[in-house]
Amino acid sequence: MKWKLTAIATALAFVMTSGIANAAGELNLFNWGNYTNPELVEKFEKETGIKIIITDYDDNDSALAKIKVGGHGFDLVVPSSNYVPIWIEEGLLLEARPDQMSNFKNLEARWQDVDWDPGRHYTVPWQWGSVGVMVDTAVYNGDINTSSIIFDPPPELVGKINFAPEMADVMGTVLRYIGSEPCTSDKAMLKKARDVLMAAKPNWLSMEYGVIEKIAAGDLAASLYWNGAAFRARLKNPDVHYGYPREGYSLWMDSVAILKDAKNVENAKTFMNFIMVPENAALISAFARYANGVEGSVKYMPEDMATATEVVIPAEFVASGHFVPACSPDVQKIYTAIWTELQK
């Protein structure tokens, strides 16, 4: 008899707690790791009473694969600009019409209409940045505004180089380095790109995420990586500097989108509108140290953001930055073949 009572009590407790959670409302955010400011989450929860549950991912493709399988329970996802068209084409996103939301006017004009989401029918900017080279200048003191740091490194850096295993970014950078374009279908150029990568590989140490601590601690001396991470590394170790390859470098914008099978659509829309408020967007940037695309958010950010060369691209390098397009499946196949060969 006693166990029956216990069972009933447990069941009741379970029903009650889940009931409470539903009443307050929740929001399941599927975002890149080490990317969401806990203060932003706290502020949102306090203002709206909606509880945010964050799950991390490491790269665009694993996020895409996980969502495609279904049954994930997420409401929001943050794909990069070059992946947004794929998400839309695969029918995974809800046409949430952020362009009609009340805070949409806060976006900088250049982000109100973008190639990867014409008219902003699906996505809202989270953060944007570049793929460049971060270098420990205590180890190498020469010119760092070139991707030859990675592909034809100076002797001081040999054996201490890392690059982010994000295929599209690496392939884009190497193709620009040899004077071509990302996603080119020109096989001669792709072959040359492969040869450059294969020849450079013995000079590298690793292909890793989580570089900030390692370069600050001296495990690495250079990496092809993202600008905000380079900024965070510099705050830990003032010798770490970020270079913009003059051969051309990639720009990206991670964008918040609502999933078609989201369970908490209204909460997700509330969140989208919430992050277009300058004070809130500033919180996003204050944590991960990337620019966010909301007009007037800079004045709410830590002071060092306004002058950091990692965030504010110096005028002389602005022209070499380009957004990476989404590659066709055929080019993607060649990318993967090169990628596998590179890691064999």
Binding site: D59, N60, D61, S62, A65, N162, P165, E166, M167, K201, W204, L205, S206, M207, E208, P329, Q332, T336, W339, T340, Q343, K344
Partner: peptide, 21 residues
């Protein structure tokens, strides 16, 4: 291993992620 040299498990992982195969 630093991701520079894969083992079988990682090669399989690649196909379900960035490899899309």
């Amino acid at each position: 291993g630093g991701g520079k040299h894969m083992m079988l498990g990682n090669l399989i992982g690649l196909q379900f992620g960035q490899g899309r195969n």
